[in-house]
Simulated scan of single mutants.
Amino acid sequence: MKNYDRLLIYILISFLGFLSCEEQEINLTDTAPYFTMQFINARKLQTLNDSIDNIDDKIITINDSITVLDSLYELNQTDYSVEKESLNNTKSDLNTLKGLFNDTISTVESGDVLISKIVAASLEGTEVTYADSAKSYKLGLNPNADSSKFYVHLNNDVYTIRTKYSRLTAEENRKIKVLAYDFDLLFDSNLDGYDSLSKIQDDSTNLSSNDFKAIIYF
Rank of each mutant, 00 (worst) to 15 (best):
M1Y: 12
K2A: 15
D5S: 03
L7P: 00
L8W: 13
I9K: 11
L12S: 14
I13R: 13
S14T: 01
S14E: 00
F18D: 00
L19F: 09
C21W: 06
E22M: 02
E23C: 02
E23N: 05
Q24G: 10
E25Y: 08
D30L: 03
T31I: 05
T31Q: 05
T31K: 04
T31N: 10
F35W: 06
T36C: 10
A42M: 11
A42C: 09
R43V: 10
K44F: 14
Q46R: 11
I52V: 14
I52H: 05
I52R: 06
N54Q: 10
I55Y: 10
I55R: 03
D56I: 05
I59D: 13
I60H: 07
I62D: 00
D64K: 13
D64E: 13
S65H: 03
I66T: 11
S71L: 08
S71G: 10
Y73I: 04
L75Y: 09
L75D: 10
L75W: 07
N76W: 12
S81W: 02
S81L: 05
E83C: 02
E83Y: 03
E85C: 04
L87D: 08
L87C: 09
L87S: 05
N89C: 00
T90I: 06
K91F: 02
K91L: 05
S92E: 14
S92Q: 13
N95Y: 03
N95W: 00
G99V: 04
D103K: 14
D103E: 15
I105E: 03
S106P: 02
T107P: 04
S110T: 12
D112P: 11
L114D: 13
I115A: 07
I115M: 06
S116T: 12
S116H: 09
K117R: 14
V119H: 05
A120L: 10
A120N: 12
A120R: 14
A121P: 00
A121W: 01
L123N: 12
E124P: 01
T126A: 06
V128C: 04
T129Y: 09
D132N: 12
D132G: 07
K135C: 07
S136E: 11
S136I: 02
L139T: 04
L139Y: 04
L139W: 01
G140C: 09
N142H: 02
N144Q: 07
A145T: 09
S147M: 08
S147P: 01
S148T: 15
S148M: 03
K149F: 00
K149I: 03
K149Q: 11
F150D: 00
F150R: 00
V152Y: 01
N155R: 10
N155A: 15
N156A: 15
Y159N: 04
I161G: 00
R162G: 07
K164M: 06
S166F: 03
S166T: 06
R167L: 13
T169P: 00
T169S: 08
E171M: 06
E172N: 13
E172G: 05
N173D: 14
R174G: 11
I176L: 13
I176T: 12
Y181P: 02
F183T: 03
L186N: 11
F187E: 01
F187A: 05
S189E: 14
G193I: 06
S196H: 07
L197Y: 09
K199M: 13
K199S: 14
Q201P: 01
S204A: 14
T205G: 04
N206P: 02
L207G: 05
S208E: 05
S208P: 01
S208L: 15
D211L: 08
K213G: 02
A214H: 03
I215C: 07
Y217K: 13
Y217L: 09
